[in-house]
């Protein structure tokens, strides 16, 4: 089993890279969260990011979504170098993130949540002078986006989000991101809080989005979920990418082995340690 794995050629970048990070470093005091970390997301693929606790998954995702600013490193989106100082910067550039804790407002209805922070105002003086919202248009467009995504479990966009199940709420959060994310969608542990059936709904949604050409980064702890949807798997360990593998050529146990360091992605370093 201990064949030398080359992290870069194992599941090589074959297509067009839409989102790329090079040499990201993030240090919190003495803790090195990201240590020269790279990432490549190809256009139209689902790239799953796995890693043990403390491997730097969250820090990596936060850098990509603008929630934190890396100390060093560069990011390229669609060929252009980008710098995200706040989440809004990433959103404006076309990178939308669905956070683990579900950033939705329970008391507001689905349409209001979809357009929270980017409401549409009415045309004419009602909108410009009285700042009146175009609730009808927001409802129609919300219904349209949900329909386009093939989300059939949400019938009434006037329904308050708190009346929805966990999976439906997740669907709202994903739909919201997908409706505005023109280039890249980042999903942080989208199935962590969900039951079996609801997880299946969310995973189907992820596949549907890929079928529509969306490029997706998905962070998950759940190996069966990862292997169900991933085109490629980015394995994060000790603050850097140690391998990018394909679910077609690797098994779950191999992925876990690389993730935990039981077998080597970064082979020479790991073997060197083992022999001492």
């Amino acid at each position: 089993m201990m064949t030398a794995l080359n992290p870069e050629t194992d599941a090589p970048v074959t297509g067009d890279v839409i989102f790329q990070a090079r040499g990201l470093v993030k240090v919190y005091g003495r803790v090195v969260a990201l240590d020269d970390c790279d990432l490549d997301l190809q256009r139209g693929e689902v790239l799953c990011v796995i890693g043990d606790n403390g491997a730097g998954k969250s820090s990596l995702i936060k850098c990509l979504s603008g929630a934190i600013v890396p100390d060093e490193g560069t990011m390229t989106l669609d060929g252009e170098t980008v710098t995200f100082r706040r989440p809004q910067d990433a959103q404006e550039a076309g990178v939308e993130t669905v956070y683990q804790n579900l950033a939705v407002s329970p008391a507001l209805d689905i349409a209001s949540n979809m357009y929270l922070g980017r409401e549409i105002r009415r045309r004419g003086p009602l909108g410009s002078l009285f700042r009146m919202l175009d609730t009808k248009k927001m409802k129609e467009q919300s219904e349209g986006s949900l329909k386009n995504l093939g989300i059939s479990t949400l019938q009434n966009v006037s329904q308050a989000v708190e009346t929805l199940s966990g999976g439906q709420r997740q669907a709202v959060a994903v739909a919201r991101a997908a409706a505005f994310g023109s280039k890249v969608l980042i999903l942080d542990e989208p199935t962590a809080a969900l039951g079996v059936r609801e997880s299946a709904q969310v995973l189907k949604l992820v596949k549907d989005l890929r079928a529509q050409g969306m490029s997706i980064i998905l962070i998950s702890h759940n190996m069966p979920h990862v292997f169900e949807v991933a085109d490629r798997i980015h394995v994060q360990r000790l603050g850097r990418r140690v391998a990018t593998i394909s679910p077609k050529t690797h098994s779950m146990s191999e992925a876990v082995a690389i993730m935990t360091g039981a077998s080597a992605g970064d082979v020479s370093e790991m073997l060197g340690e083992g022999e001492k």
């Binding site: 959103q91 993130t97 407002s105 008391a107 507001l108 209001s112 929270l116 009285f130 919202l133 609730t135």
Partner: peptide
């Protein structure tokens, strides 16, 4: 009827969610 109103409810509901939504 205004975005301001929605934001007031969103902040009171879950201020962290409101922040991540760009408010």
């Amino acid at each position: 009827r205004t975005a301001w109103g929605r934001h007031v409810y969103a902040v009171g509901d879950d201020s962290e969610a409101a922040r991540l939504a760009g408010i």
